[in-house]
Nucleic acid binder design. Structure first.
Lengths: 341, 341
DNA sequence: CGTTTTTCCGTAAACGTTTACGAGAACACA
DNA sequence: TGTGTTCTCGTAAACGTTTACGGAAAAACG
């Protein structure tokens, strides 16, 4: 079934070396022979065996994205990543690279899968998401000298890898600004309890926003919960039990916001009416929820493209004339005002 | 960086053949030597180079899932697949197989990507979703003799591949039953316009359901639209312009339902009040939409596991003692009654 | 002790590529 | 014609594995 370069060579009565050179566009092959080789390749439906090629070249021509379902995602997962991956794959394909998405089991946080990908050299580089403040994966990859890029930052000092993140800090501050402008002074912040770095960035922005308006930060208005609906449901009552309860809540995650709204509803509090609700990363759920939730939206597909470019620029084999470059970018989130605040 | 089997052999002063046999658990190696090999492998942090192994064995130990963003999915994608993939990967991992998700560009319908995966032998089998009634991918894979399984059926007669599908026919009929029981006689059906097979199955069930109750099928109550929100928005008014308009609509897709509800709202029609709305495949959007949409829910994660099992059973290298078996299953959808009907 | 069997291991080929090297032929130039 | 250069191609090694084969040593058996 599989036609190899040997079949091609035999069919054309030339050596496999010449066939390979012709196929790979090397200079030292007669224009006429190259033509014949290309035609024969088409005719015999030849395409190079990736294993053979990878083995010889020491490169797999593919980039791995580590996709990690959160333990809570029993029924449906993150719609977040699909457009990001679409952008990523689009740019990678332009450079002849395949994108493979490596799934891990929920909750094992990728260490095992990641090691497997790296050690068996299944990909030439990896892309990580859900970066944590202290990220073992980043440490591991740096130690192993394996190329990677991240969607999101970590706290780690060394900046030896490309990364693209959203400006959660600014979004947090902007959300506060907006709420203050609408008359709120008691503003709560609810974020994921995991070590996810964006949770810290968000909180920094939230605090900065409050300070800008001379509002004291009340620890009673800040709460952490598991990053899903149940987490939001569980933790929202906590800030409501504050002696001086909030009139507005900023949720750092859409699922948590939905859980929070459910809790509020059970307390007889109506979002958009008795309580202003803002969520930091917009998803379709925010748009369709009732009331539609005011949210900050990322440009996912362009981000995917951009991170691919940054990764490529950091790889010697793909970097331009100036050689490998490491870039870090922070992209803005766009406020989508809706009905919940 | 990468320690090879040669390093191991040199370090232990034995031949690479023995090392390989020890690692692969073959019988003809001394228990003592095996022990030493395993320890050394641990110590030197050895793991086999996948390219070398694949080349020699002619198998990559990985299964590809073709993930295809629809052209309409600009901002967010299908949350549908993540739990399915979680189940799939979980079962595959138990057999030592990696799951790689191959992304394609939106709209090219996988032909190119699929060919690439198959011809460069990047995976040992593939899993397809979004099966069409006449599916070129299935034809191609059958012709190429490449192992695969599908989530969904196609019309094609030969059943030489494992497939798992949802019982859209029964769901369509059940939806009609339920609506009739609630007093509706004018029931519309809106489904995707692409050749997606589930659209046909759904419509068959819908018709069967109507007939069961002696209701004539009115072509004016059936409409096709693009499988996204815009499609639902565009096509819903069409059935409303029917001379005897429907009092209920069954949508074959969540996004189309949301677009349809938007169109209804603009006509001053309130789902759950002036119009019963049912959607065939439930997603979180259905749950959070207002009114919450009555929907039929699939058991995605178990389906993923099961399809993995079926695929494995069809592969000679993994089939049990009875040899390769081809299975086809159709799973029920569970009715989740909510507020929209 | 001789013979057969078993246990264990080394040798080497093979998987499908790419590529360094060298060599023959053609060509240019004097 | 002799020499140097350029084109073009074949040869063979290498990438890291697995595995068929054979052989030496040990064990079993008479």
């Amino acid at each position: 079934m599989a036609s190899s370069i040997h079949d091609l060579a035999r069919h054309l009565n030339i050596s496999i070396g010449t066939v390979s050179r012709a196929l790979n566009g090397r200079a030292d092959v007669n224009a006429d022979t190259r033509q014949r080789v290309l035609e024969a390749a088409r005719a015999l439906n030849y395409s190079p065996n990736q294993s053979g090629r990878s083995l010889r070249q020491g490169a797999t021509q593919s980039i791995a994205f580590m996709l990690q379902p959160h333990p809570g995602d029993q029924e449906y997962g993150e719609p977040f990543f699909i457009p990001f991956l679409t952008g990523l794959q689009g740019r990678l394909a332009e450079s002849g690279l395949d994108l493979i998405v490596v799934m891990g089991a929920p909750g094992d946080y990728q260490q095992e899968r990641l090691r497997r990908v790296v050690e068996t050299r299944r990909a030439d580089a990896v892309v990580l998401a859900w970066t944590r403040r202290e990220d073992e994966r980043i440490d591991y990859l740096t130690r192993a000298g394996f190329p990677f890029a991240t969607l999101g930052r970590s706290r780690s000092g060394d900046k030896a890898y490309p990364s693209l993140d959203l400006d959660f800090e600014k979004a947090g501050a902007d959300a506060v600004d907006r709420l203050v402008a609408r008359g709120h002074r008691r503003i709560a912040a609810i974020r994921p309890s995991l070590d996810l770095n964006f949770g810290y960035l968000f909180l920094d922005g939230y605090r900065k926003g409050l300070r800008r308006h001379g509002i004291a930060v009340d620890p009673g208005l800040i709460a952490d919960g598991f990053i899903n609906e149940a987490g939001g449901y569980e933790v929202t009552p906590r800030v409501m039990r504050c002696k001086d309860p909030p009139t507005a809540i900023i949720f750092n995650n859409d699922a948590m916001a939905l859980g929070g709204c459910k809790a509020l509803a059970e307390m007889g509090i109506k979002p958009g009416h008795d309580m202003a609700v803002t969520v930091i990363v917009d998803t379709p759920l925010c748009r369709y929820f009732s009331p539609a939730l005011t949210a900050f939206r990322p440009a996912l597909q362009p981000m995917g493209r951009r991170l691919a470019e940054m990764l490529l620029a950091s790889l010697p084999a793909f970097a331009g004339p100036e050689g490998p470059r490491i870039m870090r970018e922070v992209w803005p989130l766009e406020l989508i005002a809706r009905d919940s605040d």
